[in-house]
Amino acid sequence: MTAHNHDRPPSGRVILLRVSQKALLFGIASTLAACSGGKVAAVQNAILPADPSYKIGQAFDHRKICTSTKWDTVKDGRGRLIVEYRCELSGVADYYKSLDDKKLAALQGTIQGLEGNYIAGMTSLQTKIDGEQKKLTELNAGIVNPDAQANVDAEKIKLQDQSEELLALKSGDVTSIISTTNRISASLPTDSFNDADLSTIARDASEHLSLSTKAGQNGAPSAELTRDENGITSASQSAIYELQRSIGLLQSGIAQSAASIQQDKNDTAGIQNRIVDVSALIKSDQDELAKETAGKEDYFRNLEKSVGAQIQAIGLNPVVRGDELFQWTVADDNTPSLVYAGAEMVHKDGHTDDIAYGYNSVGTAIQLIVQNSMNNYSQYEPQI
């Protein structure tokens, strides 16, 4: 753990403060004993600017989060008399242990994730090789672009479906329109049919089929059926143009793709060049896969060694105690000035991390002190 500064925005009113670095304290001199009590009292009895209904001592003492509090006076390295308030914070050790536990879980997840990524990379490389070998087989069989051929075949199916729907729409026969639309509209590409009439026909045709089973009592078509049939016929007139345009584009695209495929088939030199290129890709990827396979054990071993060292270091020197500090200087007229606010986190080996509060954090801390609603550091720390 390293020392760090908090500087988060405060909530509520903010006390105007002049906060400097923590005073380097050297202990209480015997000659200060007579005046130290007066200086401490001067701070304790001063009005708290953040909430004038409190004196500083009233607000700072008897806090729920403090297992103990202490007021003292010391001299700093430049001879100033410093009044210091210290609160031993409740739950500090548990809070930092929870952070260590989260860090431990994250590091363990890191090992699993990186090992999984390594294996996934090998699997992806093998999949790529399989695809390249399939491509090589097709090239050797004289099929230059099987994807292009598959696209042409799919476009021919679309062309057939759209041609049938166009004939149905042109016929004006509602029964034929309903049958054709419901049969093939679901397979039609929506990006090719952005005219609202096409979707209207498909929707109305579906509803019409359900209505047609509910004829009037006299057997004659109901008003709803008549209205739907008129709407379908009317919408068909606008949709015919959109279908004709799409059919023309399909026919042109199929012709161009088919010509390109045939040209590739006739270009034996081109096929041979692609065979050479694909063969080179396969060789390169196979070499890479062999390298990854051979290095897998070393990678896993080094990963577990490096991350494992971080895991083992967690909790070796935990935080065992935390104190919150406020320090004041006191003028000759007994007016106190806050010069430092922060916390000391004491580790198992005795070394201490200083956490100096920024200006905004000081204001927030004092508001929380006045509220006195928190009894655990896990609640308090995220606010500061």
Rank of each mutant, 00 (worst) to 15 (best):
T2G: 07
H6D: 08
I15N: 08
L17P: 02
R18V: 13
S20N: 10
K22M: 12
L24T: 12
I28A: 15
G38F: 10
V40G: 01
A42G: 06
N45K: 10
I47M: 04
P52M: 03
P52G: 03
I56G: 01
A59T: 04
I65K: 03
T67R: 10
K75W: 08
R80Q: 13
R80I: 02
I82L: 08
E84G: 12
E88D: 15
S90G: 05
A106T: 10
G109R: 05
G116W: 00
Y118W: 03
L125K: 13
L125E: 09
Q126Y: 09
G131I: 02
E132F: 12
Q133L: 09
I143K: 12
V144P: 00
I157T: 14
L159A: 11
D161L: 09
Q162A: 06
S171H: 08
G172T: 01
T180K: 11
T180L: 05
R183M: 10
S187I: 05
L188W: 01
T200Y: 07
A202Q: 06
S206Y: 12
K214W: 05
G216I: 03
A223R: 09
G231A: 15
L243Y: 11
S246M: 09
Q251I: 07
S252N: 10
I254C: 05
N266G: 14
D267H: 07
A269W: 02
I275F: 07
V276C: 01
D277E: 14
E288C: 00
T293I: 04
A294C: 05
G295D: 15
N302W: 04
I311Q: 04
A313Y: 04
A313T: 03
N317G: 05
V320P: 02
D323S: 13
E324P: 02
L325I: 15
T329Q: 10
T335A: 09
S337Y: 07
L338Y: 01
A343M: 15
G350R: 07
D353W: 03
Y359A: 09
V362R: 00
V370Q: 00
S373W: 11
M374Y: 14
